[in-house]
Structure formats: C-alpha cells, structure tokens
C-alpha cells in the first residue's frame, strides 16, 4: 500500500475551499499525526485519503498497491463511533463478513480482537448500550480485525474522559506495534506528543509543516505552528 502520495490535493464544498493544494508523501512506519486547529481541514484531508470524499482536483496515490482493491487494505475509526444495533461481537463480525470472511472465521477473529481491547466479557451485549469509551474501543476492534495495512483515526478520543483516552491510546500503540500504519488527526498537542512520530501541521486547508515530532515542538518552522504550540493551555 504505502507510501501514500498526495498530489496537489484540493477539495471545495460549494465555493468554500477546504483543502488547498496539499502535496505530501507519507511513508510506511512512523505514526503520522495530522495536527491543526479546528476547521483547518484535518478530517476532510483524512476522508480524502481514505476515499470517502472525492478530491475536487489532485490525486491520492497508493504507490504500493498492486492495482487491487485499495479500500480493503485500510480502515477508519471515526470521532463518534457508529455502532450497529446488534451485539458487540456482531459489530466486529459485520466488517469481517463484508471483507469476505466466512462466519466461523469471522467469529473467531472477532473474539480475538475483543479480547485484546478488553471487551471480551461484553461480546454479547448490544453495542449501543456500551459506554462511550467502550464503544470507541469496539470501533478500534472492528477496524483492527480487518488487519488493515493503514488505519485512519479521526480525533479518536475527542469525546472521551482521560481514563478512556489512555485505553484508546494504548490500543493504538498496540495496533502500530502489530505493523499497521497509523494516520490520525488530533487538535490535542499532548496526544500528538504521546502518539506521533511525525507531524503534518495543517492550517486553513494548507500543509504548513511536515516534520519529525521533536523538531516540530522544539523549533517549529512556521509562525502558525509556533502560535499553535504557544497557545497550548496547561
């Protein structure tokens, strides 16, 4: 799949330009954090990469793909988990069956990932009655079960309390350790520091910086990034 190349990517909704000519090359390996203020275009950029939105102009190229189904090798976790009205287990099985796995295969795999995210004891419970943090862990399990090469995460902890956030972050690290490329958005600098290896800093629809995490926080190259870092609240 990787590297992922964005070539002069633009996206407009009506007359409003949301992404303005972003070019970047995202390599396999490091955890990539797309950072920026609210409204910068982070979520839209991620949806363009994942193929949920079609760019107004420019291209999203997966260099490593063997002309196959690129969608099948990526998964996405959304800010607000969308759970189907069925059991936690069935939610994971649903994704696996769409990916062409048999029922028995799917159930085995689903139980495995539920175990890993700590939801095995809730497997039979309806997904929608789980807490917000549990639902987000379930969403991660559903994505992880597919064994994606790339996992997109859109502000995965924006609605969660600190304890749940910690759970989610350690699961993200486990997924990274299993060899899946992590690409996530956040507006939270602490999270960027904890989870990021490299930063794509987006401001007003433009890619302002694409640097390793250390350099970004020590000596930001742009005024926008410097301001964004300086304005961080304790």
């Amino acid at each position: 799949m990787l590297p992922l190349e964005l070539d002069q990517l633009t996206f407009s909704a009506g007359n409003a330009a949301i992404i303005r000519g972003i070019s970047a090359r995202i390599e396999a390996g490091p955890r990539t954090v797309i950072l920026g203020p609210n409204g910068a275009g982070k979520s839209v950029l991620m949806r363009l990469c994942h193929g949920l939105l079609t760019p107004t102009s420019g291209r999203v190229v997966w260099h490593g793909s063997k002309n196959g189904d690129v969608r099948r090798h990526q998964a996405m976790v959304f800010q607000r988990p969308v759970m189907l009205r069925r059991s936690a287990l069935a939610n994971v099985v649903y994704g696996l069956k769409l990916a062409g796995k048999s029922r028995s295969q799917s159930e085995l795999r689903a139980m495995d990932v539920l175990e890993v995210v700590g939801l095995a004891q809730h497997a039979a419970r309806p997904a929608r009655v789980l807490s917000g943090g549990e639902q987000q862990r379930l969403a991660l399990a559903r994505a992880w079960a597919l064994g994606p090469d790339v996992l997109f995460l859109d502000e995965p902890t924006a609605n969660l309390d600190p304890a749940s956030t910690q759970d989610i972050e350690s699961i993200i690290n486990a997924i990274h350790a299993s060899g899946t490329k992590i690409i996530m958005t956040t507006h939270n600098l602490g999270q960027a520091r904890r989870l990021g290896d490299e930063i794509l800093f987006i401001s007003n629809g433009r890619l302002v910086e694409h640097t390793p995490i250390d350099r970004f926080f020590k000596q930001p190259a742009s005024a926008e990034a410097a301001t964004f870092i300086k304005d961080e609240m304790p």
Binding site: R47, H50, L52, R71, R72, A75, M76, F78, V82, L84, Y94, G95, L98, A99, R142, L146
Partner: peptide, 16 residues
C-alpha cells in the same frame, strides 16, 4: 446519514 461513512469505510455496497 448516521451510518453512511462507516458503512462505506467497511466496504458495504448499496444493496448491502
């Protein structure tokens, strides 16, 4: 409206 992106992300076709 609620499920659209999630279902497409999981690769569901229209009928599905």
């Amino acid at each position: 409206r609620e499920y659209d992106e999630q279902l497409r992300s999981l690769g569901a076709q229209r009928l599905n």
